[in-house]
Amino acid sequence: MYTSQETPEHEQVHFFHDRKSGLRAIIALHDTALGDAMGGCRMWPYTSFDDALKDALRLSKGMSYKCALAGLDIGGGKSVIIGDPMKDKTPELLKAMAESINQLGGRYVAAEDSGTSVADMKAMQEYSDHIVGTTVQENRLWEQNDGDPSPATAYGVLMGIQASVMHKFGKESLEGLNVNIQGLGHVGFRVAKHLAEAGANIYVYDPVPERQARAVKELGAVAVSASDVVTKPADIFCPCAMGAAVNSTTCEQLDVAIVAGAANNQLATSEEGRRLFERGILYAPDFVINAGGIIEVGMGRKGESSDAVNSRVVGISSTLLEIFVRSDADAIPTFEVAELMAQEVIERARNKSIEPRAVAARVTNPQDKTALAL
C-alpha cells in the first residue's frame, strides 16, 4: 500500500479520521534524536491521499534538517489536514485535530502553517497543550505579529538572500538587483517588502490578484505572469509559494544567478538541485534559509532571550555561507552539503543518547488503536 521511498526512514506516521467533524489528517514524525518533534499544521485541498502523505513525509524530513542546522534541540514533524481551508475548516474540525495531536502524548507539537492561522492555533490550544506560536514575542528584529512565525521566517530569508548575494556577487548591498518573487502570502509579501526596502527591483506573481495589486501599490513592485516570474531574466528567483517550484521544466527555464526563497521543498527532486549546480546557479537550501519561523517558535517556547533568538535567525547567513564554501571546495551541490551537515548533527545527537529515542517506523490507526509496521 505504501510505496513512497521516504516512508521507511520516518519514525512514525499517524493517520486520523474523525467522522463527526470530517477530519482527515496525517501526522508524520521523521526523526526525534534532537528532541520531540515540532512542525506546522498545514491544511490543503490535496487531490489525493497519496499527495497528502507525500507532502507530510517530505515536510517532516525537511523539519528534521531545518532544526538540526538551526541548532535547535527539536525533532522533525509535520501535520497535514486534507481539506479546503476556505470551505472545510470548522471549530469541530480544529477540536478534532487538537485531540488527535494529544494522542501522541507530546511527541509532536504543532504551529500554524499554510491554510491555518494563529487564530486556529489559539482555538486548538483550548483542547491541547501541544500547540505553540500564539504568544507575542517582543524586542525582535522583525515585526510583532501575535505569535505568527511568518515575520521571523521572512527576516531569515532576507539574511539568506544577503548571504547568497555576498557569495555569488561579492557585494553586501541588494540595491539595484532584480528579483522575481513567486508567491505573496504571509511570508512572501514580507520578503518582498524587505527586498523593496533594501533597494531591489521586485517582480511579483501570485494567483490571488489582490495580493499582486497590494505589492504594486505598497511596494512599487511590477506584476508579472505565472510564466514570466520563472522565465524573466533576473539576478534572483525567490520562490515563496508551495513546493516543487524548481522542477524538470522550470529548472531549464530559469535565467538567474541565485535561487533563494521561503518555500519548503523547492526542488521537485534531487536532480533539479544537481542541474542548478551544473548550470552555475547558486541554490540556498530551503530548509536552511527558511528556518526563522521554527527558531522563533522553538526558542520562544523555552523563554530564551530576544537577543538569543535574533542572533540565531541572523546566523542563518553564516550557516549558508559555510554551505556555499563547502560546496565550492568539494564540487558538490549545495543541497547535498546541507543534507550531509544536518545528518551529521542528528547522528551525533543519536550517538549521545543513553536510550535511543527512535522507534521502528509505524503507522497508527486511531480508529482501532492498532499499529501496523510499514
Rank of each mutant, 00 (worst) to 15 (best):
Y127F: 15
M121E: 07
G22Q: 07
E11R: 01
N178K: 15
E126C: 05
G39I: 00
V256S: 07
L184K: 05
R211P: 05
Y283H: 11
E278W: 05
N365Y: 13
I131S: 04
D228F: 06
N139F: 10
I101T: 12
V246Q: 05
D36E: 13
E296W: 01
V179W: 06
Y283I: 05
P8G: 04
D18K: 09
H30F: 03
P151H: 00
P85G: 07
G188S: 01
E218R: 00
R58D: 04
S150G: 07
A234Q: 02
S270T: 14
V246D: 01
N145K: 14
Q253L: 14
P285A: 07
T32H: 03
E344A: 15
A68Q: 00
P285S: 08
L276H: 11
Y108V: 03
I74G: 09
F16V: 01
S48V: 12
S327K: 06
E9K: 15
G83P: 08
D148Y: 01
S64V: 04
H10D: 04
G106T: 06
M97C: 14
R279F: 11
L29W: 01
H186V: 01
A284Q: 03
G188M: 05
A226L: 11
N264G: 08
K66D: 02
T370D: 11
A119F: 13
T249M: 12
R275I: 12
G298M: 10
V297G: 00
N365I: 10
A56E: 00
D31C: 01
G293V: 02
E347Q: 15
E126W: 01
A260S: 12
T90K: 09
F16I: 03
V187M: 00
Q12T: 11
E271A: 15
A215W: 08
M43L: 09
N139W: 07
N201K: 09
I101S: 08
D307S: 14
Y108Q: 03
L320K: 02
D235T: 06
A329N: 14
V363S: 06
M124E: 01
F49Q: 13
K66R: 01
K171E: 06
T116Y: 03
V216Q: 07
E271M: 13
A111V: 07
Y2K: 10
V359K: 14
M1D: 12
D368F: 05
V204Y: 06
V309S: 03
R58Q: 12
T135E: 15
I27A: 03
V359S: 14
V157A: 00
G156A: 03
L93N: 07
D84R: 09
P151L: 08
G106F: 11
V136R: 13
S173C: 10
G199P: 07
V109N: 08
M341R: 12
